[in-house]
Amino acid sequence: MIETPNQSWNLREWLAFASVWGAAVLVTVTFCWLLGDIIWHGLSHISWTFLTAPPENAGRRGGIGPILVSTGLILGVCLAVSLPLGVGTAVLLAEFTSDTNLFGRLTRRSLDVLAGVPSIVFGLFGNAFFCKTLGLGFSILSGGLTLACMVLPILIRSTEEGFRAVPDNYRLSAAALGLSRTATLVHLLLPAAVPGLLVGLVLGVGRAIAETAALIFTSGYVDRMPESLLDSGRALSIHIFDLSMNVSGGDANAYASALVLVIMLLIINGTASWLATHSLHRKIVTV
């Protein structure tokens, strides 16, 4: 057997081995600590009553019923606006403009910038534009519209990827059969691009539901049951923030709310990765 001539090799290899495993263990431990802590303190407070009852005494007692409703409504507004906008833009970018088209390039660049805008800046913009200029005030509508602007880049990017994954020969043979662009889109491209669209949708929902900073001064703090989209409504993430920062003795309910939020996100992310692998599988079968 040949001895390794270079002693420093051995030392370096050993150090690398130790730090790689060290990093992995550190990350795992931190994660388990965080999640364990939230489950440990939150689980005992979660019950059907907690999920449905209104908050009492500034949230120290009672549940999160109206808050879940507000969160759902904000999300609904966000999707109702961002879905048609996002899919339309993605179709235009992927199917109706070439890569060198000036408008397409400008739009893409603008969306890249939008993806990098910090959420607090979205909050500032939402406050100035939706609440003040459009006169919607602190409302679920303002919050949802602000979130719609925020999730648009994610939605567009993955929908566009869905369209680009559709093989070109479908387009060619559809054109050779004299099918209109609308028919080609509706019957062939859209069904084939659905997996990408769904992944984008789920990721967008995940981002929207986790968002806090953009909502503080657009959808507001009011924790009553909202009566219309023009009412202020408190999102779950803002509830957690408020309980932990501004309400002394609110930790128990904050833990429970955090656990509810984390569970929702785990479900959403699980769905996204299931969809991604599922659609990948479908692609292999098709080819």
Binding site: T89, L92, S110
Partner: peptide, 22 residues
Amino acid sequence: SWFLWGTAMMAGTIALLIMVFL
């Protein structure tokens, strides 16, 4: 095609709108 151009126009101007309002 008009619908698609409209949506893309709106999506593309949001970033600009944000800067303008800031």
